[in-house]
Design a protein around this nucleic acid. Structure first.
Lengths: 391, 391
DNA sequence: ATGACTCGTCTAAGCGCTTACACTAAGGTT
DNA sequence: AACCTTAGTGTAAGCGCTTAGACGAGTCAT
């Protein structure tokens, strides 16, 4: 019992710190050098069972001396849990900062939220950015990813809904900022509907603006869809509320500029306000208006959605709705951990409150920029999920 | 041979897609269902050896049907390689965007660079953000991290140099934006010296500015050290070049404001230019000057370093030196992969060229903002590493 | 035929942990 | 004195893969 615990075929050499030349020390090395079994070392490592103080001490010393660190792969395999979750979002390829690339900060912010929550639990975060354009081998990358993690957090629009369901058979999945009517997987999303409703209501009630123009997002974007529905609902219940025009953009600054130009050309009388489906397009509108000599907010108000950084710096500063990006990440992560703890949990929708950010492009006092929580409003028509956290 | 390959004790059930109820299918399941050995399945999986077309086909079918994906932990363990590398940088805790938090985008950008390179090789990225203040258990987190990855990319300032050396015994390490005189580990860093030299030379030669004030970074920051040395060197070799004053800041906007206030108070004649060790402080200086009615660049020029996003939006737009953040990440990653391929590679220093970004805070024409590559200049005094990529 | 190869496949030994279970010695109970 | 606990430790069977080596069956030149 004293000196010959099973060395398991490992070539033994001197008693120097690194026992098997050049190799990283393993649990067996520690056990051998401490004159105990691997079980005991493992117990010491995890503060588990009752191990005598003396033994514990001895093992600790050897661990220290060897600089031993348990191998993650072996632990994962043995525990049947990797304590790693994966995050899949958009790759940012640009070398230069610009408003466009800043919008991708959305995901960086989400990432930080996820990591913070994960860190609390001692788990790790595996990152994968997928280029949005060229389809191709993504499926394969995702499959291989799913073998390396316990769960997958996926950004909206990264993967078609059908594939999601398939993937979800292997690992739990939480979609971030996804469509609120997704059913097969968990979704954590900002309350786009209520946010836009609050914003438009602000325009209508506090600034008396009634004739609105809408710069919509792409057809495929679920968030843009929600925002549009809210706009229409508020307008419908406002006496005199009119949608004087609308145009679809691509969420880019340029498409915002184009929308503004078209608006300027086609409409003989300016609307009271231009409501854009995101901040980038609002910034584009602002730029086009500035060039055309249209004053904002004097001649027309302009508002966006998301609260990306450059919006606070534009001229005039953009009124918008804040997406709780960091929180989105944190909640998605929290849901995932719950899921792993209770594998029989049914997928649900979690909707996070947005926040109104009143700067001056809507006509508010520039010096009194404020943030204001957005109350939850129920969407009028169906299409929502019947059950879930969202109630 | 037809139907009873070793099932290895796994309880067999129906022939439905998921063979052992509820369990994720393993290589053994595939092998059994395809009527071949695990070795063969493995070969098919990796396109390896010669496997007959018929067998290959059959195995592929079963894999598909089962939705089988190899377990990453098991693969890592068996291959003795995880194909995962870790990145350790600063945690961003703020909920709000501001200039300060934008500076942390530096690391987000590095992250994207790392991921892009890693993606090319099919490896994965494990992220860990460390809060910079509260010391504590970081050491433990890092140790545990080192068991989960094949190599570690570490941001400058995250870990004291002494610990680095210890860590480096276990896994290869590349420090990003680290001190150029680190010897125990690889370092990838921007050419702070040449960048600053070019910037100051621009001030001196093209704008005829000779009396400079320096807002330095913290003593501990190696990059600030390099920048200061370059400033002094250029000044020393300039007839009439004088450092009229200097103050240490903390790299924050506020410390920049304070420096400017002190400057305004203590100096009876404004310097020709204020050279700041980073952009945040330069922005602080700009703000303080604006409040004090000092015109930039008419009364005094102000320049920064890093090229963070808000610098392009300040008034006047900030002239600065661009750090190749994304490239920093890419190169660090590339070095790491080389290291893993050739474990006997000696640690070296890789210095990346910076770029001059001429906007208008230095006195350049605002409409002619330009970027200009920075030629490599040799530092005057010693203290550099004798060998390595840096030559 | 026979040996020498080649192909395609299988067997089984790891990889470095965790952990159920078995075991021993010492102390406590009746 | 016989039996039961309990604390402390060891044994060994996995976890799901990879891969060196063995093997049987063709092929082919001798």
């Amino acid at each position: 019992m004293a000196t010959s615990p099973g060395a398991r075929g490992h070539g033994v050499s001197g008693v120097g710190p690194r026992t098997r030349e050049g190799k990283t020390p393993t649990l067996y090395d520690v056990a051998r050098l401490a004159g105990v079994s691997t079980a005991t070392v493992s117990r010491v490592l995890h503060g588990h069972d009752r191990v005598s103080e003396a033994t514990r001490e001895r093992v600790r010393e050897v661990i220290d001396e060897l600089g031993y660190v348990p191998d993650g792969a072996a632990q994962s395999l043995s525990r049947r849990r990797k304590e790693v979750i994966g995050l899949v979002t958009v790759a940012r390829e640009t070398k230069q900062y610009d408003v466009e690339s800043m919008s991708l900060l959305f995901w960086d912010e989400v990432l930080h939220g996820v990591e913070a929550r994960l860190r609390d639990h001692g788990w790790s975060l595996l990152i994968t950015f997928l280029p949005t354009e060229g389809g191709g081998d993504h499926l394969e990358r995702l499959a291989s990813l799913s073998g390396k993690v316990d769960g997958l957090l996926i950004g909206e629009g990264m993967i078609p809904s059908a594939r999601l369901a398939r993937l979800a058979e292997r690992v739990p999945i939480v979609v971030i900022a996804g469509a609120p009517d997704e059913r097969a997987v968990d979704v954590v999303v900002a309350d786009n509907y209520s946010g836009t409703a609050a914003l438009v209501t602000h325009l209508v009630v506090e600034h008396g603006l009634r004739r609105l123009y809408h710069v919509d997002g792409p057809e495929s974007a679920p968030d843009a869809r929600e925002r549009r529905r809210a706009l229409e609902a508020v307008l419908a219940s406002t006496p005199g509320g009119t949608l004087v025009g609308s145009r679809r953009g691509t969420f880019s600054v340029q498409s915002g500029e184009e929308a503004a130009q078209e608006l300027l050309r086609d409409v003989d009388r300016l609307p009271d306000a231009v409501v854009c489906a995101n901040d980038q397009m609002a910034i584009g509108v602002l730029q086009a208006f500035a060039r055309a000599g249209v004053r904002v907010p004097a001649d027309v108000a302009v508002v966006g959605f998301d609260d990306i950084y450059p919006g606070g710096l534009s001229d005039p500063p953009l009124t918008t709705v804040h997406q709780p990006m960091r929180l989105l990440g944190e909640r998605a992560c929290a849901r995932m951990l719950e899921h792993l703890a209770h594998p029989d949990l049914r997928p649900a929708l979690e909707m996070l409150p947005a926040e109104l950010v009143l700067r001056s492009s809507c006509g508010c006092d520039p010096d009194a920029a404020t943030r204001r929580p957005v109350p939850r409003v129920k969407a009028k028509r169906a299409g929502r999920r019947p059950s879930g956290v969202a109630g």
